[in-house]
Write a protein that binds this DNA or RNA. Structure first.
Lengths: 193, 193
DNA sequence: CGAATTATCGACCAATCCATTCGAAATTTG
DNA sequence: CAAATTTCGAATGGATTGGTCGATAATTCG
């Protein structure tokens, strides 16, 4: 019916739902298996270990995020709209992603260096995107930035700071409602009049 | 600073968040404890067991639901609006509550007869409320019900049927979007022109 | 103060859970 | 049919976790 590679993808899709809901530790191989209607031991025919599946899931998730971000930017023209869309999608995504982290930073994270690798890679990609937006914004005279590299760095740092409350989940943060306030902070001193 | 009874409540509040997120089985005493910044063994000074805490949480949750439902009904005048509000709050609540069930119907549910007790009690309360709404609706000539008792029973059965997809979580159900369709089903043959 | 009471905790235990292995059976392929 | 692919049940061993207990800390109160 379906070849091995296809079924590997199916496993990732199912595992994604469960991992994103319960995190790494609380997710069991039994759950993943039964969500696919196969026996637990069958999974090991497709993947070597739970960690391997988790890595594949996180990678998948990262790719989805990258796509969402690029389309969010492409869908509008003006630099301010691009920023607005970018920030919105990013915060929304992080809200979801924080579930994964949640369960990782429990203990024994030594296995999860690969997440840091992905993270670093994405920071770089994000920098490139932000730099471009600000460069474009300066050229079009809507942003007041002398150095787009520097501004991009500052904004990225601010964004990371905004992630913290999401990460620690003191409280649900309603992104929709807070977006304008967040953009106010980000645009502080950048937006021309 | 705070007396024993107060702290018991605090425990329930904390445990509520965790149980509602992870269900009974996936929630650990360690988590409950550390969310309160106390040691695991200290919890046993306030409660005898995990099950006892869980029961208190479910009871608490049930009370909250009852309050929400009664205020939802009181807040409007017309019988159709009352139904709309009632159904909305009920479905919303069940969506959340299903997390608890989720983890219970795993196995060894013998301990959880008390949930059935609560359930039965609430079915009765619900029937009383529905009967009243329909009786009032018939009197005000907006509903076409000959026997409000019978209609209430039928509606309750339908509502229970609608819970099923929420319970089994094949997919997220967007209550906001589906509400009108649900009400259409419920009002079928009841609403006067 | 000092003793009684209240509250917290670390260390420990037994039961269960759970990721993983393995060999055998089932199923598909050719 | 035989070979290759796929599924699975049973077993295991190490980690997890609900719960106990006795030892202290902290608080109360005469």
């Amino acid at each position: 019916m379906i070849n091995k590679e296809e079924f590997r993808k199916k496993i990732i899709e199912s595992a994604r739902e469960i991992f994103s809901r319960y995190g790494f530790k609380k997710t069991t191989m039994d759950e993943i298996a039964s969500s696919l209607k196969i026996g637990k031991s069958s999974i090991y025919y497709y993947y070597e270990s739970k960690v391997e599946i988790f890595e594949a899931v996180v990678l998948h998730e990262a790719n989805i995020l990258r796509n969402e971000l690029t389309t969010a930017i492409k869908s509008v023209e003006s630099p301010t709209d691009k920023m607005r869309n970018y920030v919105f999608v990013r915060m929304k995504a992080f809200e979801k992603l924080s579930n994964y982290y949640n369960a990782i930073f429990d203990k024994s994270l030594s296995h999860f260096d690969f997440i840091e690798t992905i993270r670093v890679k994405y920071d770089r990609e994000e920098m490139a995107i932000l730099r471009l937006i600000f460069y474009d914004g300066a050229r079009k005279n809507v942003f007041n930035v002398a150095n787009s590299e520097y501004t991009a760095m500052a904004v990225q740092t601010t964004l990371k700071g905004l992630e913290v409350p999401l990460f620690w989940k003191k409280k649900e943060v309603n992104i929709e409602e807070r977006l304008d306030a967040i953009l106010d902070v980000l645009f502080n001193g950048i937006l021309k009049k």
